[in-house]
Design a binder for these strands. Structure first.
Length: 391
DNA sequence: AAGTCGGGGTC
DNA sequence: GACCCAGACTT
């Protein structure tokens, strides 16, 4: 038997605090003690959990409503073509989530409904240990504790765990699971886990936690030691490298843009892009050097052919910083090559991931904002200093 | 266990 | 700038 897992604090005070101070959120379901358990739609809870993976509540809010309006139930999502799902997810990042969401919706429809156990949910693509536990607890009141960033922080402070993450999960996970040994937690599993999330989001925050307001202020080892702001300890991250790309914006006489589908896996997998060079380390691409990567190699180019635009667009990914230049050309009306499509500027901007949207203000006339129209007032020095653009 | 995979808000 | 966010998946 390894070291005993410490007793977690009592669930009752946290649930009482939650009953008074819980956040009102679009996907939230709530079962106050003594009242009938309300209708809980596992589709909505599942969708919220996937959208919230590494994504803030503020970002998800409007996108969640928009997604539900377009795909109101799992059958609607399963029946939609991938292109519509991708366009709806554009800008949210981590596009594997959208691919897995779509595949999981089809699996759910094929099997006749959502699995209602943690193990069953875990089998669906895009549902890992956390999301399986979260949906099982919130949608089905299964007595399990999902461990997300909030729970890691709360538990590491309660128990004053000084071991750095992610290794510390070895200690945090079994300690969190012990909450469900308590009768008060088992009576309201969905509320209890959402109470843990709310505590982490509003009281036990990463910086300057509001310990004076915490329902567990007398039960927290880190607070007794005065080290709550130093926990959890995290392992240092690797430095980000820089890469360079040059992209080619072709416009036909009707003003449409030529876009390319990226491969289904990997970075921005399954999403649209402005065709261009690979993204390499080292030096930026010159136009001549990049020309072999231009689309429509055999097409006549109107005017002076590909023209390199001034300025660059920058975009930070998790593991690298991308520095992009833009060349553009007017081309005659022509069929799109395989794997590419002509799109109206408005639809193109909506469907492109953010990294690609950052190139649009470099175009002339710029395709920066809103309905694919021309940005007002030109993009002179002022416009060029917008976020993500350098002269 | 370490890398890959987005993007935005915050201090 | 660095950090964080209701993480999953691959190797």
């Amino acid at each position: 038997m390894p070291d005993a897992i410490p007793d977690p604090p009592p669930a009752g005070p946290l649930l009482g605090w939650y009953d008074r101070h819980r956040r009102t959120l679009p996907w939230r379901v709530y079962a106050p003690p003594g009242e009938a358990r309300g209708e809980r739609d596992p589709y909505r809870i599942w969708l919220s959990e996937v959208m919230l993976q590494q994504t803030t509540v503020a970002t998800v809010g409007p996108r969640y409503a928009r997604f539900l309006a377009r795909f109101p139930d799992v059958r609607a999502l399963a029946g939609a073509p991938w292109e519509e799902v991708a366009a709806e997810w554009a800008g949210l990042g981590y596009y594997a989530r959208a691919r897995n969401l779509h595949a999981a919706a089809r699996a759910v429809v094929a099997r006749g409904g959502f699995p209602d156990t943690e193990a069953g949910l875990r089998e669906l693509p895009g549902i890992g240990a956390y999301t399986a536990a979260a949906v099982a607890a919130i949608a089905f009141d299964r007595p399990t504790v999902p461990v997300d960033g909030n729970v890691e922080r709360v538990v590491s402070r309660l128990l004053a765990i000084r071991e750095p993450l992610p290794g510390a999960r070895r200690l945090i996970a079994p300690a969190a699971a012990r909450f469900m040994e308590q009768k008060e937690a088992r009576a309201r599993p969905g509320d209890f886990v959402q109470a843990l999330f709310d505590l982490g989001a509003t009281i036990c925050t990463p910086r300057r936690p509001a310990c004076a307001l915490c329902p567990w202020r007398g039960d927290c080892a880190a607070q007794r030691l005065g080290i709550q702001e130093t926990l959890p300890v995290k392992a240092p991250k690797a430095a980000r490298g820089e890469r360079h790309g040059l992209h080619f914006l072709a416009r036909d006489p009707a003003g449409r843009l030529l876009l390319r589908h990226r491969p289904p896996e990997g970075l921005l997998g399954g999403m649209l892009e402005i065709p261009g060079t690979p993204w390499r380390e080292g030096a930026p691409w010159s136009l001549e050097e990049a020309l072999p990567h231009a689309p429509l190699p055999g097409a006549p180019l109107l005017g002076a052919g590909w023209r390199l635009r001034p300025g660059t667009a920058r975009h930070g990914f998790t593991h690298m910083d991308l520095d992009m230049r833009l060349a553009e050309a007017a081309v005659p009306e022509s069929p799109a090559p395989p794997g590419m499509a002509w799109m109206e500027p408005e639809a193109a901007r909506a469907a492109l991931p953010t990294a690609m949207r950052r190139l649009l203000p470099l175009a002339e006339p710029p395709l920066a904002e809103g309905a694919g129209g021309v940005a007002s007032g030109g993009t002179g020095a002022r416009g060029a200093r917008r976020k993500g653009i350098q002269a």
